[in-house]
Amino acid sequence: MIKAVIIDDEQHCIDRLCNLLPEIKNPVIQLSGTAQTVDEGISLISKHHPQLVFLDVQIADKTGFDLLKAIPDAQFQVIFTTAHDRYALQAFRFCALDYLLKPVDADELQAALLKVNASKNNSVISEQISELLKGVGTKPRKIGVPTLNGIVFVPVSEIIRCHADGNYTELHLAGKKQMVVSKTLKEFENLLADYSFFRVHHSDLVNLDYVKSYNKGKGGYLMLDDNSSVEVSSRRKEELLKKLGSM
């Protein structure tokens, strides 16, 4: 059984979750209370010490982030809920934090709760939250990567390239390190869109900061600092050269 609270400024959003939660059989959620402002939320959490907080992003004139900042040593997991906030979503994805889109879908709620049940490592949670708070409003330096052993934060600047392997992605990092992540290359491409990454090929996303040279050919190929070579698709060649030229 998981003790949870809901913090959202809109009553109908609270109602929706309240209606859905009793339907969920695994894990069973015990709802300890709800709050409609950040301040109420803070006191609700300090009173009940919940394991899980459903947290809205925009709460009246404040944000869920303000609430998290006010509780530095958070010992609970967070599932954000939002209707449409592109920047917040990007930040959650970056820290591998869970979120639900409103109106909440019953199946998605179930999936998120199963994940809450599985991960109980509080130190990772506080790292996720602290990275999230660091990243809000700026370009985050590190990216949270879900691995078999939990979430690992990797500095974006250390990623040399990402290589697609079916539904998995191999990350090739500086210092000859490698990781396999159960995310698609497309997800990484979207996450890293604001950085100097470029998809040169169906199966390769390259950090252009690590490009040593470009060798001409039909599409040609890139030589990277780790001495690997990556083929460039002929359709991407022109745009790549433009990008490399502007760097």
């Binding site: 449409h84 889109l101 409103k102 109106p103 909440v104 879908d105 019953a106």
Partner: peptide, 16 residues
């Protein structure tokens, strides 16, 4: 109505 609206929201998001 509830199932429908959830799907509709998803679709709307995708369309946007």
């Amino acid at each position: 109505a509830s199932d429908y609206s959830v799907k509709f929201a998803k679709l709307m998001r995708m369309v946007l």
